[in-house]
Design a protein around this nucleic acid. Sequence first.
RNA 1: GCGGGGGUUGCCGAGCCAGGUCAAAGGCGGCAGACUCAAGAUCUGCUCCCGUAGGGGUUCGCCGGUUCAAAUCCGGCCCCCCGCACCA
Length: 979
Amino acid sequence: MCIFLSLSHYFGGDGLMYENYREIEKKWQERWEKEGLYIAERDDTKKKFFIIFAYPGISGYLHVGHMRGYTYADVIARYKRMCGYNVLFPVGTHATGNIAINFAKRVARGEQAWIDYLKDNGCPDEIIRKLGDPAEVVKFFNKVYIEDYWKKFGFLADWRRFTTTINPDYMKFIEWQFRRLKDRGLLYKGTYYAPFCPNCGPIAIDASQTDILKGGSAEKVEYTLLKFEYNDDEYGKVYLVAATLRPETVFGQTNFWVNPDVEYVVAEVGGEKWVVSAEAVEKLKYQKENVKTLGKISGKKLVGKYCRAPMIHRNIPILPSRFAEADVGTGLVTSVPSDAPIDWIGLYVLKKSREICEKYGIDQSLVEKIEPIPIIRIEGWGPLPAVEICQKMGIESDDDPRLEEAKKIVYKEGFHRGVMNENCGKYAGMRVDEAKEIVKEEMLQSGEADVMYDLSEEVICRCGARVFIKKVDDQWFIRYSDEELTERAKEHAKNMEIYPSEYYKNMPSVLDWFQDRACARLGDWLGTPMPFDKKWIIEPISDSTLYPAYYLISKYVNSGLIKVEQLCDDFFDYVFLGVGDVNDVAKITGLDAEIIENVRRDVEYWYPLDINLGGKEHMTVHFPVFVMNHVAIMPEKYWPRGIFVHWYVVGKGGKISKSKGGAQPIPRATEKFSVDGLRLYYCHIASPFVDVVWDDDRVMMYKQRLEKIDTLIHTLLSMEDEGKHRMDSWLLSIFNRRIASVRKSMDSFDLRAAANDIYFEIPSDIRWYIKRGGKNRELLISILKKWLAMMCPFTPHFAEEWWEKVGNGGLLSASSYPSEDENAINIEAEAEEVYIGRVMDDIQEIIKVTGIKPEKIVLYVAPTWKFECYRLAFEKAALGKKAMGEIMSHVRDFAKKLGKAVPNYVSKVLRDAQQMKDKDREIFGTVINEFEVLKSARDFMQREFNATILVYRADDENVYDPHGRAEKAEPWKPAIYVE
RNA sequence: GCGGGGGUUGCCGAGCCAGGUCAAAGGCGGCAGACUCAAGAUCUGCUCCCGUAGGGGUUCGCCGGUUCAAAUCCGGCCCCCCGCACCA
């Protein structure tokens, strides 16, 4: 075997192969690049597989967590390629929005923390100087993502197709998409209340705080504004405007709260004079027409007066409260002490404090007369829930922090379980959650109420300004609520392969839930202007729904075959929708008809997309619109086939951060853990569908795992060849089972299960083979080759290097994935090893319990009659109750001789056989020649236990059995005697 | 609130949908041993409790139920996490 001679110099003791992983990675990445392995071209003779990962936004340097999903995509792509598919795996980036703009601003401003962050990541000074320009930011990071991340990780992506969303050609594609959406009646203009920065325009509020500095968890809340008529000596008839989240509680109003320390503002709103806080006026200016400030009015002045409450049309007293905050709602509050704990406590405090009443000149007897009005019945509660909860919790002061909790409890109970009572006029008997909307509507109709939006907490824009909610009248929306679109999308989603299955189940409700979406922004953003309304820029989610299709075009543009200006609607209509005539399109675009036909055939060949893989953040944002836009625009045959959602890598406290590890630049991580170590880590550490906590030690373990395998491969290659061995058939059998199991896992994208077989189970099988004395080099080599091939999608550098070392020509990445040989499956061989394993476990157990240091171990194989009964039990198990009789009729001779022992044993073993699962029956239903098996394993066991092993048949007349153990022997469980 | 996910033996994490060789894979950590001048790496064994014979006991968030049999199925409860929209 000459290949081993050629290897001999390698085993001279110069350390493990994988110690040189850095060189190995570089070597193979260059080879793959040189041989063009990444290139994907249409080939009508081959089946295709098209996969993408949701392209990342250009947000700066990425961390190791981001590589998790990208790695899954490459592993899947590599696997499919080795399975004979023509694989298209293109990559791109997303630059729409203001992330790059904000990035550039921070550089331009010379923000120290930002500069440090860039330097930490190894960004050279001359580059930093350029990054004050958003276009440079995009350009620079496109290169970083490709060169430092994806190529360094050994991805075989078709780099020629790279695109980014602000490329002029990509923008042409988006223009086409939006014209088609409009044609199909899915675009319209409407009113929208958007988070808005006075400097930067509309912005996004999200937990990742892309646009903002503070307030990522703020929610948009809708206040009902209640108007209380009040006659002022200076301004005449004005409305005190209170904001509430519970308009249905107006029936329980007893008084009105103002903060005596606040200067309120009188403002003209819609021809009326409103009294609200100064903060509220600012907010209203963004939501109402012609808001003008007329003057001021102090809270103190209002205290003690009366105003007329909406809906109930009663005059109620205005009382002082310090909890009416100027910046919440309108700064004015109506009081419903029956159902709002804070209102009740406000009253309670006043009732008790003569001091406060005197201070504000209020007649305390009047306050004392105010009683809460019961309005809502809640099962299990008395008529006045707010009073009740305060008493229960012992709340007595209006600055008790537990008031927040009390409020939550009462609101939750009241809103979801409560019923309006007889004090509520025509709403009596109505459920509270129903009444809320109707009461609000009625007051809006009558002009007693209005609506205002606010944020649940303070939000500060990246530019430093406070964020408000602004009314936008001519906002563009995509009509995702469209019934037909939704139905068709739901119908199609049923036929998609969506992972995990929980998400598959949830997809219909996500599609139902997905309402119309504001799809464009005003302001200075990167992105595609709305083609028919250019002041609007299409927002980041909406311009990234059909983009997998664009990778089929980008190749032509990138190579110069197609010019940007040739990408017109007629072109897209023809290649994607098959609309129009190729010659007409050729004439219009000036392109050769042949090129256009080529593109069209590419689309027909590659589309639809097989897998769109992305992080869990896409579940309710990107994936639904990805599906719906395809359904809305593309022909049915191009609708996507699959979605794969993965979870995150997080830091110990939540986010990846410097202090908790995982924040090192990706190139530094690959140096430390090796690329293959990292790839294996991502694939094996956990199910893709859970978050993983980054932990350096655990990542390192995967590098060590490769080193262990490295060692094992060395061991088996440097072993002396002893030719065929009785263990060969076992190894072949078990190995082919592994192949089958790995393929099954891979085909359902269960990378973890596959990696477990490949990197953990197979090495342990091989070790067992060696331990049991197997030394058939030819067999080991043939298995090693297949094993390396199985590793290739996960740890391609490691696998290629060994593949070459073992003397194979060609690239492993370009060869085929092993398939199992069913003929190699040998149940008997497997059963024998299970048997040996169990016998050894039993011996071990006895040694452990007794503490004997064994010199002699005697094994007794069951007598013939028991084997006969055992065999029959499994054979006849399916007969059910008849089995017993049937079996006994076959073993009558034994029974005559041995008496009751026979039926007793039959009934026991029959019960076992009948209860056994099919997969176990396969092994344990097999009757092996135990005597022979034990004899053949004698040397092995003697070595393992460092003792003499004797093997007898229990019914052997010359049996050595000083303690009468032999009679315990049963099939699959020989009796054991240790001394 | 609406929608979704989850609580497994020191830790991580399989198993649960298709109930039974499940005291529950695998890894990590720990302990013991081999190798070594030594350390690391590597390899072997042990790692819920009891047990001088392969056994027994108590476990899979809590309480109940179905079943010959429950980590797995059903009902109730407690706790944790995620999404909720101009955000790769």
